[in-house]
Design a binder for these strands. Structure first.
Lengths: 338, 338
DNA sequence: TTGTAGGCGTTATCAC
DNA sequence: GTGATAACGCCTACAA
C-alpha cells in the first residue's frame, strides 16, 4: 500500500488509467471537471507520475548533466548556480559531476551518461592533455554537448567562453603601464586551449610594448597548494620578477602566501594581477587586481545554449560560440602609489 | 539504428535478451565465455543498459538529491563536493537543487522528488520560519532524508551538524579575552535552529564572563549585500561596539567593508571573528579570525549517513546525529598587538 | 470524452 | 547455462 501509482488512483476514482494520465497532460482532451476531480484526488493521495516510467515511455529525461573540474571553487560553483537557475526555470533537473581534473573520470562520466540519464551535457573539460577523441567516437549518437570555459579546440560543439586573449593582453599591458619590466606568468595547463590563449595574450602584450619575452618567467604550477607556494618562493627569489600575472585564481593566492613568507611587499616590490571571480578581492591584503570572469553569466549562457540545442537541433550550428567579456579591475595589488 | 538496446544486442549475438541481461549482473549464472562475448560486443556496439528501464524495473534510481540554500557559496559548494565524492564512490549520481533561501522552492523540490527520481535526499534547509510540517505529512512514504548544517529541530530525521554552541561560546570568549566589552552579534535567521544555537553560545559566554547582554548589540541582517553594509555602518556608528561576532561568513565581509568605509581600524578599534570556511581568510586585510567549519567533511558525513540509511533502514535510527567539530582559528582581526 | 491495449527496455521467475 | 514470459508504471493510438 505504500506507493500509489496511476492504477490505484484510477481505481479510487473509478476511472481508467488513460483518463487519469490525461489529467496530467495539458494537451489532451479531457473533461474539465473530471480533470479537476483527478487532480484533487491525486493531491490527496499524494500521487505523482513515476519519473522513470514516464521517461522510459517518452525517451527523455528532463535532466541535464554538468561536469566540472571541481566544485569547491568559487568560479565553477557560481557557474553551476547559473546553470541550475536556467534549468530550474525550464523544469529541468541537473546532475552534477566533478572530475577533480582526472581525465579518466571525465571519460567515464560522459560514457555513462549515454544511457538515457540525461538529455544533454554541459562540461568544462579537465586540464590534462589527452586524446579526447573519445568524444568524436560517440558522435553519431552523441548527446547534445556544450563546453564552457575550458574547451577542447578540436571537438566541434557549441561553446561558451570568455575573451581570454584580450583579457590577458590588457592585464599584461596594465602591469607594463604600472612600470613592470620583468613580468612572470604563472601557468597551469599550458597545453589546454584556455592555457594557450591566455599565455598568448601575455606574450603579445610584451611584444607590443617591446619587453623581451623570457621563457624562464613562465612559471609552471600544479594543482597542489603547498607545492605551488614552495615553487613560487624559489622562483621569486631567483628570478626577481617585478610583476606577476596569474592565469588562474588560486595561483594569485599562492603568490600572496609566497610573498608574505619572503617579505616581498605587494605592490611595492611586486605587482600582482590574476584571473579571479572572487567577490571579496577588495578585502585581500592588498586588494587584488583581477580579471573578473562573469561566472554566473557563463553558466547561464551555457545552459541557454544547451536548451537552444535541445529545442532546435537543426538550426543551432555545432560551431555556435558565445563569448562573454571579462572585466579588468585595478586595485591596490598593481598600484604605484604607496 | 540509433539506439542500441538489449534486443538488438541479443540479435547481433544470436542470444536471448535474458542471457545478455545476465552478462551485466554479477550474481547470475552465466557461462564465462558467453559473458565475455556479450561484454565485448556491448562495448563495440556502445551498448549500455537503459537507466530508466532498469530503474523502473528495480524501483530505485541510484541517485540522491542534494538541496542547498545556495551554490555560489564556498561553504555549500564544498559540502556538495564532499557529497559528490562519496556518492561517486558508491556509483551514485547526485541531483543538485538550490533554493536561494526560498521556502516554497524547498517544498516544491521535495514534493517533486517523491516521484522516484531519487532514492534519498540530503538537505540544508532554507532560513525562513515556516511551517515545515510538510515533511511530516510525507512521512509515511517519505524518502530517506538527511539534514546537514541547517536543520529543522522538530523534524525527526538523521542529521549532521557542527558543534555550533561550543564554537560560538569559544569565539565570544576569545573576543572577551582580547579585551572586548561591547560585542555585537550579527545574526541572520534568528528563528532557525542554527541561528538560535549560535546566538545562545554568544549569550552564555557573555553571562559566564559577566558582560551584560544588550539586546541592541544583536544586529539582524538580511541576505542583501548592500543593505547589510549600510545597516552595519549605521549600527557601528551608533553602537560603537569593540568586538563583532558574525554568525555567517558573508557578514564578516560586510563588516570589513563597513569598517573600511568608516575608517574603523580592525583590530585596533574593532575586533572581528566569524563563522567561515574561507581558505584564504589569512589573506584578508587584516587576516580574519574564524570559526572554521569542516565543510567538505560535513558533506562526506552527510552522504555516509544517507547511505547507511539506505543500506540498513532498520538499524539506523531516525534520531542519528553526527556532530563534527569546528575549529577556532585566531588571526590578526582579533589580535591585541599592533 | 473516455476506455482498451500495446509497448517503452529491462530484469526476475520459471521452465527446459 | 540459456530462453520464454511477465511485469515495473506510464502514455498514446485507436476504438467506442
Amino acid at each position: 500500500m505504500d506507493n500509489v501509482n496511476i492504477k490505484k488512483l484510477a481505481e479510487a476514482l473509478k476511472l481508467s488509467t488513460s483518463t487519469v494520465s490525461r489529467a496530467f497532460r495539458d494537451n489532451s482532451d479531457i473533461n474539465a471537471s473530471t480533470k479537476e476531480r483527478i487532480l484533487a484526488m491525486a493531491k490527496q493521495m499524494n500521487y505523482q507520475p513515476n519519473h522513470y516510467a514516464s521517461n522510459l515511455r517518452e525517451q527523455k529525461s528532463k535532466t541535464i548533466a554538468v561536469i566540472v573540474p571541481e566544485l569547491g571553487n568559487n568560479y565553477f560553483s557560481l557557474a553551476v548556480q547559473g546553470i541550475e537557475r536556467i534549468a530550474s526555470e525550464k523544469g529541468y533537473h541537473i546532475l552534477v559531476y566533478s572530475t577533480n581534473d582526472q581525465f579518466e573520470k571525465e571519460v567515464s562520466f560522459i560514457k555513462h551518461l549515454h544511457n538515457g540519464r540525461a538529455d544533454g551535457i554541459i562540461m568544462s573539460v579537465t586540464g590534462e592533455a589527452n586524446d579526447h577523441n573519445y568524444l568524436n567516437e560517440l558522435s553519431k549518437k552523441r548527446l547534445p554537448l556544450v563546453f564552457f570555459d575550458r574547451v577542447y579546440e578540436d571537438i566541434i560543439t557549441p561553446r561558451v567562453t570568455t575573451n581570454d586573449y584580450e583579457s590577458s593582453f590588457s592585464a599584461t599591458k596594465h602591469l607594463i603601464e604600472q612600470g613592470c619590466k620583468r613580468i612572470a606568468y604563472l601557468a597551469v595547463n599550458k597545453t589546454l586551449s584556455i592555457g594557450k590563449t591566455r599565455m598568448q595574450g601575455y606574450i603579445d602584450a610584451l611584444k607590443k610594448y617591446k619587453i623581451p619575452f623570457q621563457e624562464e618567467l613562465i612559471i609552471d604550477c600544479t594543482n597542489n597548494y603547498k607545492e605551488n607556494i614552495d615553487h613560487l618562493k624559489q622562483s621569486f627569489s631567483q628570478l626577481k620578477p617585478d610583476g606577476v600575472f596569474t592565469s588562474v585564481e588560486r595561483l594569485a593566492f599562492a603568490t600572496y602566501y609566497a610573498c608574505y613568507d619572503l617579505n616581498i611587499s605587494i605592490p611595492n616590490d611586486l605587482k600582482v594581477i590574476g584571473f579571479s571571480s572572487l567577490e571579496i578581492a577588495p578585502l585581500l591584503n592588498p586588494a587584488l587586481s583581477t580579471v573578473t570572469q562573469p561566472a554566473l553569466e557563463l553558466g547561464k549562457a551555457a545552459a541557454s545554449l544547451l536548451f537552444k540545442l535541445l529545442e532546435n537541433p537543426t538550426t543551432t550550428p555545432a560551431t555556435s560560440a558565445v563569448i562573454l567579456n571579462s572585466k579588468l579591475i585595478k586595485r591596490r595589488s598593481t598600484s604605484t602609489e604607496n
